[in-house]
């Protein structure tokens, strides 16, 4: 079983909800990324999502768009992102790292070359926002050879029939997009997400992580009762952006925020 599967299984047996923070690699600069990841783990993160900056992040709201632009402005490329993962791995061989990004970054490197390089760096999973299951066979195959999970997404608009198909193709976990919208959206409805969680739960044996629009402890806690994990992205990225004049303060701020979310989930 992959590091992702093991981690989620262990959490499930402890009846704990996974806390999965997201940051964009290279934002505000490359040297800040590994300390930020370590701080999130210290604060209580169970898995990490690391964004691969892309010029045209069509599924992202303003906060993550801006962070992607900052990362690109200082020259962050896919190799740099993998180097960050390798550096993080050198000090932590427990916490799964999942890259999140857009397909063109992977295609430019080549699926096979990317899968090999990602495995060498210590990447455990990939989330490609613009890659639905119908188009995913060749990348899934390349990643599987290297033991990397291709995480598939489900959405509020996904039909029951499709949810079952997603379950058949998915490995690691299923990522449930909480709302119709982009990352960081403000219109999450706990009641609706719970309905979709139940719909998906009935159709998959895999763990379910929920993301998009989860910005605070109470929301994380409310969803954590039914989901196996929650992803928090824009809220973290915005906190980092607010510290642009004092980037040294980022790790402690992230550790504290992760800690607060952890406490809300465990309460």
């Amino acid at each position: 079983m992959s590091r992702i599967g093991q981690t989620l299984e262990a959490l499930r047996s402890q009846q704990r909800t996974a806390l999965v923070p997201f940051i964009t690699a290279g934002d505000p600069h490359l040297d800040a990324t590994v300390p930020a990841l370590n701080a999130l783990v210290q604060g209580g993160a169970d898995l990490l999502e690391l964004g691969v900056p892309f010029s045209d992040p069509e599924a992202d709201g303003p906060a993550i768009q801006a962070s992607s632009e900052r990362a690109l402005a200082n020259g962050t490329g896919l190799r740099d992102v993998l180097d960050c993962v390798a550096e993080f791995r050198a000090g932590n061989d427990q916490t799964p790292v999942i890259l999140m990004g857009y397909l063109n970054s992977v295609l430019a490197m080549g699926e096979g070359a990317f899968a090999t390089a990602a495995a060498e760096a210590g990447v455990d999973g990939m989330i490609i926002v613009n890659l639905p299951p119908e188009e995913s066979d060749s990348l899934r195959g390349a990643l599987a050879k290297q033991g990397i999970d291709l995480i598939l997404l489900a959405a509020p608009t996904t039909s029951d029939e499709r949810l079952s198909a997603i379950d058949r193709a998915a490995t690691g976990f299923v990522y449930l997009v909480s709302l119709k919208g982009t990352t960081g959206a403000d219109h999450i409805s706990i009641g609706e997400v719970k309905q979709h969680l139940a719909r998906l739960r009935a159709r998959t044996r895999l763990p379910i992580l929920v993301g998009f629009g989860i910005k605070d402890g109470p929301t994380a806690r409310a969803l954590g009762k039914q989901a196996d994990g929650v992803v928090v992205g824009a809220a973290i990225v915005s906190r980092m952006a607010a510290l642009s004049a004092d980037t040294d303060a980022i790790p402690e701020t992230l550790r504290q925020f992760a800690h607060d979310l952890r406490q809300a989930l465990d309460a």
């Binding site: 599924a59 926002v129 639905p132 188009e135 489900a154 959405a155 608009t157 996904t158 119709k180 919208g181």
Partner: peptide, 20 residues
């Protein structure tokens, strides 16, 4: 039938849009 023109085309979008 699945929207490809040779190796091109297809549907590379967020899952939320597939239904539409």
């Amino acid at each position: 039938s699945d929207g490809h023109f040779g190796q091109h085309g297809g549907r590379f979008v967020a899952e939320t849009l597939i239904h539409a």
